[in-house]
Amino acid sequence: MTDDVAVRITGLKKSFGSLEVLKGIDATVGRGEVVCVIGPSGSGKSTLLRCVNLLEEPTGGKIVVDGTELTDPDVDIDAARVRIGMVFQGFNLFSHLNVLNNLTVAQRKVLKRSPREAQEVALRNLERVGLSEKVNAMPAELSGGQQQRVAIARALAMDPAVMLFDEPTSALDPELVGDVLGVMRELADEGMTMLVVTHEMQFAREVADRVLFMDGGYVVEEGPAAQVIGEPAHERTKSFLARVLDPTHQRPAS
C-alpha cells in the first residue's frame, strides 16, 4: 500500500479554537502524481497542505506520508519533514544567508552532508530552476519569481519524496508567475510527486493528474483535471469556476 501511495490522508480534522476549518478530509496522492487543490479562500486548502507536514497540528484523523504516520504522537517529525519539501506563498528564503547557503544549510546540518557534497547538490538544483548565476546573491537582491525558484531548489536539495506547494505564485507580479509555473511543470514532467494549492486554473488543467475542489472544509469534488475544471458536477464547483474564469474576476482576493 505504501509503495504506490505517497500521501494518504484519512478523516483529517483541524480546528482553530471553535472554528472548524477541516471537517473530515480523505485524500491520497500517488507516487509520481500531481494533485492540485483548488477552491475559494477560506475553504481550508492551505490548512490541509500545512497539515501534511505538520506545520499545523491536526485535531483528528490520520496522515501518512512516504510510509510514516505523521499523526503518531511518537513520530520523529524532523526526520519525516526531510522527506517532504515545502514551498510557501511568501518564499521564506533565509534572509541572512545568500542563495548558496540557503540551499546548503539544511543539507549540512540536517542530512549531515559534507560541505562539498552539499554545494554540488545545491548547484545542481539551482541549475534545475535556471538560477545558477545567482549563487552568491542575497535573497533581497532577487525578484519574487527568482526567490520562489530558489525556494523550490532549496526544497529539492533535500531529495524529498513529496513536494508541497502552498499558493506558490499568489505573491508574485503577474509577469513573474510564468517562470515559477514553468519550473513546477518541469518537475511534474520529471515524475515528482506534488501536492499543489493554487489559483492557477490553467496550470491545474494542464499539469495536474487529479484536482480536488475544496469548499467549507470538505473536499466537494475530485477527479481528473479535465473533468473537475472542464465539466464540474457540483453546483459549488461550477459557481467557483465561473467566478475564477470570468475575466473580470480573474484573481479573487485570497
Binding site: 521564506n92 539544511a106 546540518k109 540536517v110
Partner: peptide, 25 residues
C-alpha cells in the same frame, strides 16, 4: 514566522532552528 516554518519544513529541530535561523536574524 515564515523563517521558522521554512527551517522546520527542512527538517531542522526547534533548537537548530533557533541557532541557525532565529538568533542570527
Amino acid at each position: 514566522k515564515g523563517q521558522i516554518e521554512a527551517a522546520r519544513s527542512l527538517g531542522m529541530s526547534h533548537g537548530r532552528t533557533l541557532a541557525t535561523v532565529v538568533i542570527p536574524q
